[in-house]
Write a protein that binds this DNA or RNA. Structure first.
Length: 834
DNA sequence: CCGTAACTTA
């Protein structure tokens, strides 16, 4: 595969004036046509083996920069775009003999501005030039790109190329070493090792940093020691890092004790243990949660006469922040300054994280202010921490502001940060914006990955937009990103939530008959769908399928079945399932018990419910706030409302947070007992605990006042809720309207009905029927007729039942015209009047 | 090559 390169003589003798004519023909005509013109030029013709090579000759003759200046960028590019890889190899090699800058310059121009794909030969020529010139940064980046493109297993072929094509080049040993280093850095350890083996054959020296990098990548394995022995055998000098990497490896391989002994062993060497080694040990201890031990090593350092550096301080400050001791971390930062070590950007980033972990984003902001005062600028990590922090507390707008700022300061956002933003947008229902952000990230050249797509698919499905979720799914598939179980679950769930169980089943069957790996969760979702529809038989059918296929059911599978049995009143079977869970080697979950407890409660078997609570606690299955809510419901049924109230206090004491349903349950009970004072007190308690009362809470209070209290209080409550702009549902109005109808205050009822319509609620036939039935019962014929007409003008057709009620009222009131008219309408509708 | 960020979950 190796290309032959003829030794090439640059055309120094060509003068600009001589080149001018042929160049223009090269630019404006096809290569074949240019051949004839070139034959007129004796100087050029003498060296041209074939017309296309002239471009190379011309370039080498003038030098890249001269030519580019001479032609201008556009023509230069046009000319150069006609080159192929072997030609470029020739040019670059001859340029490299001239000056390294022009070779590398031309190389970069082709790659960056013309999108040219260089051959490995060109790359290695440039690499050698860079090595000779000691331009290590550029050298490293070219080799890294090459190695990353080639991928794992490519070392032998690259070594072969170096060996046969570049053996006698200057700086060959630097290039070999860099190749080994690059493979190490890109975590292709085997390739790195095979380069090292070749280097050993060739008697080439390996640098300390290459050895260190390799050691670092092998620190989890035994091979680490082989490499270390090789370092010692070859006489390569060790650095402070060499030992620290070994210590880090020991920490993970054999434990901290061995690592500590190894650290202390260095006492006997002439240099003694290094700060870096101590830092490594401290970092390990911190990561395991032993900040105190890390602190004691800090003191040991002083005893050895070592001076802790900024790493030492940052490691401890980070350890303290993670442990939640922010105060001590801040104290330590002051200590750091007192000892003459200036906090750096990393220090401030760590403190930001400390504040973020405690949910104190305002504190994090203050840290950044302090950082700016000190003349340090936030870096991409600072921004990442802040963006993630704001997302975490749901403050997406602040996160977006920072994202914009980050971009305007020239930082590249990672795919991960975009995913964080997308995820929190989806969580708060801003899926539309999330989609826009997806397009934005694609526009800035970032490729969304599996997780990014999964988040969006999940978000769209949750919102019920399975259609668009499937489009994203296809988009992902087109990019050869293979969706995993996550997307499948989301889509199945989305289809199920849409209410079309057949559609969901079709998708499910499609997945389960084809998929290589079966996912029990898909079965659970499907079974749960059937149970929710009351079709327990189909759920059981699926369970049988799970067993037949030899799949392992999960606790959720059984919980779903238990829920099904409970729903159909088969408590004995439900209870039996609990034992089946254990037969399958699984543990019942809090949901298992809570479901059973709820069923017992619903059946009025409060003792059975409490028995289950005891059993659950005996088996160390922790009751959740839902379990407690069920118990509270049971106590309320028994009229033990004080016990119920006490249980809420007990929940707080146990660190469980009651939710809105917990409070609604008790409030309902208190209303029924006409204890409105306590009911409203609990409502206030909700506010105190930052629990927003739901529309149900207010419906319960209004209904309570209507049925068990003072209707006027109920009216007043509605007014004050409206004044406070509190969100209510239609139920609040219909409850009051029904109450006024029943009491006979038609005018209030009508007024409320109008209010309800004005608020924009969708009014159904059920709402009209409820009012009309009640009015008819009390023979308020005119008002009933009024609502009936209102309904018709609203475009809502009456049903047979309602027509009969009206017909009856018309007959009773002697309004025979209306009766006849209605009768005619009824026949048109196809109703059969009795 | 010692220190900071990093996404989905019935």
């Amino acid at each position: 595969m190796l290309h032959h390169i003829h030794k090439w003589k640059p055309l120094h003798f060509l003068q600009k004036s001589q080149i001018l004519a042929p160049l223009s023909s090269l630019i404006f005509t096809k290569p074949s046509a240019s051949a004839a013109k070139f034959e007129d030029e004796p100087a050029a013709a003498a060296v041209i083996p074939n017309p296309r090579n002239t471009v190379s000759e011309v370039i080498t003759g003038l030098g890249i920069f001269g030519l580019r200046k001479f032609l201008g960028n556009f023509y230069f590019r046009t000319m150069v775009s006609k080159l192929n890889q072997p030609e470029v190899d020739l040019i670059i090699e001859s340029l490299s003999l001239e000056s390294s800058d022009s070779a590398f310059g031309f190389f970069k121009f082709l790659r960056n501005e013309c999108g040219f794909r260089h051959s490995r030969i060109s790359e290695f020529i440039v690499v050698h030039v860079l090595a000779t010139n000691r331009q290590f940064q550029e050298l490293r980046s070219v080799v890294k790109q090459m190695v990353d493109e080639e991928g794992p297993g490519s070392a032998p072929s690259l070594c072969e190329l170096l060996l046969y094509r570049f053996r006698d080049w200057d700086s060959s040993s630097v290039v070999w070493d860099m190749l080994a280093f690059a493979y190490s850095r890109s975590e292709m350890v085997h390739d790195a090792l095979s380069v090292l083996a070749k280097m050993k054959d060739l008697n080439l020296k390996v640098s300390t940093s290459t050895y260190n990098c390799l050691l670092h990548n092998l620190r989890h394995t035994d091979i680490m020691w082989n490499v270390y022995n090789e370092i010692k055998d070859s006489g390569t000098p060790e650095s402070d890092y060499t030992r620290s990497i070994l210590i880090d490896g020991l920490c993970q391989q054999s434990g901290l004790q061995d690592a500590v002994s190894f650290l202390m062993d260095a006492e006997r060497t002439e240099t003694g243990p290094s700060v870096v080694s101590f830092n490594t040990i401290m970092s390990r201890f911190c990561k395991l949660g032993f900040v105190d031990v890390a602190k004691s090593f800090f003191c040991v350092m002083f005893k050895y006469g070592l001076v802790p550096d900024s790493y030492s301080y940052n490691i401890l400050i980070h350890g303290l922040c993670v442990a939640g001791s922010l105060e001590e971390a801040l104290e330590f930062t002051k200590d750091m300054e007192r000892h003459g070590v200036q906090p750096d950007t990393v220090t401030y980033n760590i403190l930001c994280k400390g504040f973020h972990l405690l949910g104190l984003m305002s504190g994090a902001r203050k840290v950044i202010q302090k950082m700016l005062v000190k003349g340090l600028n936030p870096d991409h990590v600072t921004y990442t921490i802040m963006i993630c922090g704001h997302c975490h507390v749901g403050n997406i707008d602040e996160a977006l502001k920072l994202q914009k700022e980050m971009i305007s300061r020239g930082f590249q956002l990672s795919v991960i940060v975009y995913s964080v933003l997308l995820s929190s947008m989806c969580k708060s229902g801003r899926v539309e914006e999330a989609l826009r952000l997806l397009y934005e990230m694609e526009a800035v050249g970032l490729e969304p990955d599996l997780i990014t797509y999964s988040i969006l698919i999940h978000g769209l499905c949750k919102q019920g937009d399975v259609q668009r979720a499937s489009e994203i799914y296809r988009e992902m598939y087109m990019k050869r990103i293979i969706p995993n179980y996550f997307a499948h679950r989301a889509i199945l769930l989305g289809l199920r939530e849409k209410g079309d169980i057949y559609e969901a089943r079709k998708y499910f069957d499609h997945l389960t008959t084809r998929a290589v790996t079966e996912d029990i969760v898909l079965y659970n979702i499907m079974m749960d769908g059937y149970v929710k529809l009351g079709n327990v038989a189909e759920a059981i059918q699926l369970y049988k399928q799970i067993i037949e296929k030899g799949l392992n059911p999960s606790t959720v599978t059984f919980n779903t079945l238990i829920h099904g049995f409970c729903k159909t009143g088969k408590l004995v079977e439900a209870r039996r399932m609990l034992d089946t869970i254990e037969l399958h080697g699984l543990l019942p979950s809090p949901v298992t018990y809570t479901t059973l407890m709820n069923a017992n409660c619903e059946q009025g078997n409060i003792n059975g419910m409490l028995e289950l609570l005891r059993e659950m606690e005996a088996k160390d299955v922790e009751p959740t706030h839902v379990s407690y809510t069920v118990v509270i419901k049971g106590l309320c049924r028994q009229g033990k409302r004080w016990d119920a109230v006490h249980l809420v206090e007990e929940m707080y004491a146990k660190g469980l947070s009651p939710d809105q349903i917990t409070y609604n349950t008790i409030i309902k009970c208190l209303c029924k007992a006409q204890d409105f004072e306590k009911a409203f007190q609990l409502h206030n308690e909700m506010l105190m605990h930052n629990l927003a009362p739901t529309p149900v809470t207010y419906n319960l209070l209004i209904n309570g006042l209507c049925v068990y209290g003072d209707l006027e209080d109920a009216d007043r409550l509605l007014v004050s809720l409206n004044d406070s702009n509190i969100n209510l549902t239609k139920v609040a109005y219909t409850t009051l309207i029904k109450a006024h109808c029943a009491k006979g205050d038609v005018y209030r009822a009508v007024a409320l009905f109008h209010q309800m319509v004005e608020k924009g609620f969708e009014i159904s036939i059920r709402d009209y029927s409820a009012v009309i039935n009640r009015l008819c019962k009390r023979c308020w014929t005119t008002e009933a007729k009024y609502f009936f007409c209102m309904m018709l003008s609203d475009g809502i057709s009456p049903d047979q039942e309602l027509c009969e009620v009206m017909l009856n009222v018309f007959d009773q009131g002697g309004d025979f015209d209306s009766a006849a008219e209605l009768l005619a309408e009824m026949i048109k509708f196809g109703f059969r009047p009795d």
